[in-house]
Design a protein around this nucleic acid. Sequence first.
DNA 1: CAGCATTGTCATCTT
DNA 2: TTAAGATGACAATGC
Length: 693
Amino acid sequence: MLSLKKYLTEGLIQFTILLSLMGVRLDLDSYLPSHLPSLHEIILGPTSAYTQTQFHSLRGTLDGYGVHPKSVDLDQFFTSRRLLSCVRALDRLRVPSTALDAWLVHRETDGSVSSAQTGSSRPSDNQQDLSSSGSEQGRDGQGLEELGATAPSGSSDLSKEDIDLIDILWRQDIDLGVGREDFENRQLQTENEKVWESLRDEPDTETLEPVLQVDGETGENIPQFQTVTPSDVLDSAQCPVVSDRTDRLLSPMLSDINSSLDLEEQWQDLMSLMDLQAMDVNGSSEDPLYLNLDPPLQQDIRLDEASIPGCSHSVSSDFTPNMEPFSTTESPGLQLSSQNSTDMNSTFGFTNLTGILFPSQLNSTGNITSPSTVSDPLSGLLDEALLDEISLIELALEEGFSQVQASQLQEELDSDSGLSLDSHHSPVSPSGSESSTSSCSSSSTASFSEEGAVGYSSDSELFENEESEGATGYQPQYSKICRMSSQDPSQFQHLPFLEHIGHNHTYNMVPEEPEEVQPMVESRRTQSFVDRQAGRDEQRARAMKIPFSNEKIINLPVEEFNELLTKYQLSEAQLCLVRDIRRRGKNKMAAQNCRKRKLDTILNLEQEVKRLNRERSSQLREKGENLRSLQRMKQEVEHLYHEVFSQLRDPDGQPYSPQRYALHYTINGSIVLMPRNLEGQQARRPERKDRRK
DNA sequence: CAGCATTGTCATCTT
DNA sequence: TTAAGATGACAATGC
């Protein structure tokens, strides 16, 4: 019972973290051990729909007032991040992990992100991401602090791409949650492990700041301490980040994954969600994301009293524009303040920004410590389970592709000419036969040269050969020509009128086989065999003194065949032989056609299977790319949260403690700074009720 | 000489 | 009903 309770407790914690990723608020405090901080502080948030409204509301309003959050004037106050990191540390499960030790190897403590910090790898890609479309501030080595330097123009610093990413992230936080608790729970668990490890290894938050700058998207500074795995190799070309995360993610998650998760279904669900979100995002991509930090309306703490050191402007005036990216069009005014408990429930539906952002933060505390080593469960799963699968599939396809291609080509050629021969050009067909009595030689020749099919034209060739040689009965060569044409394409080469035909109807031959050896051997073998087979009836016909060739017996239409029989006075034995020859001849062609059809069917099925495998592989790859994109966006949103929070100052000019305060969305789209204990009392109660259904 | 592949042939069914 | 085609099964043949 005790173990069960422990299990449930841990599972609920993970589940709660998962819900936090979705912006769903859930109260797990009652389940948490006393020594752990209340999880609701980081996972608070209203329902998905609620949160979504909030997030959308963050975009669109730019008053142009105040100081931009990226102002360099705020750099000196970034020591607040230490407190923030402490809060983060408290809010995370400390799960022993041994695979994350090297995360901070390339992190420097100067608080700025520069190429030097990232070592040989790509420097501070996250800065580029934050200022993605055109903003070069990240490359100036200014670090995250500089983001707030350009106050009035700060909103413009948030490129549309950034805004779009944030928006997408926000929606996905919402949408991903429902029904995916288990899956993301495991992700969170893994990330939490990494976070704890990173925080434990780097207790100094100052050292974490640079890491915060590092872009989790590329994560190219990681490979130096990454363990190369097959999946890394396979994936590194197109997604170095994922491969970087692979080894870290795999160990903590592997067991869980193997135990219960149906990855494929999860991917399907995620992708379906992401598709919807992508469409939605496209529509909103034009809207900048603003954080509106207008003077707070709340009681306990008024952020208008907060000041940003180094900035002469008041918070209410200067900070507002900075925060506009997070405000909603519906409520441009920002309430960046803590609230009284009564106001919260009645006036606002709170979405703890930490709840929204901490998901990414949880994910990206790894970012904080080492963006490149961001432990992204999705990406990790992607790397190991998905991409490996993709790669294997592709490799398998690649291996057999040449053969497949050859067979496919052959199939196409055959389908183009082979089967159609019967219906269009076969001497047996009425159209061809009606003129074949006098010109059967020409018609047969045309059929032979045009089609070149195996069994379909063999008798045409017979016919031609027989006609050309005067229909004298048994000609040892005719079947040889027939078989040469059908079995060994190389034998066509000495036939000038067939040189332009590239068809290969040797369906019994492997395309890759050396044409010089195997086909010739095969050809000789079949030729002799066919000669004997054809020779039997020919000999019989000669023995019975049949006055016309077997070619005619077999290929003439039934009317002409009967006319031919009446033209000659044949004995009963001769008539029987002629009919048997005709029957056997037609059945031989029929058997050849039948076998060819059978083979074509098999080849078609094989092609279809391979095509479906390729399609599946492509779709899986697309899923992986989308998931990676999602992770990047989450990380960027987290960065923004940290930027905003770290720049807030109380009336004394001191940064707010992340342990005590957190940013929340309100129902009207504003962002408020709330005491954590207050939000725990007021905000999460309704949420818990909502989630228990 | 057994095993395999190819082809022809027969019986039967379908068109 | 009949001719022609389709096809499974078997045999013949060669490697």
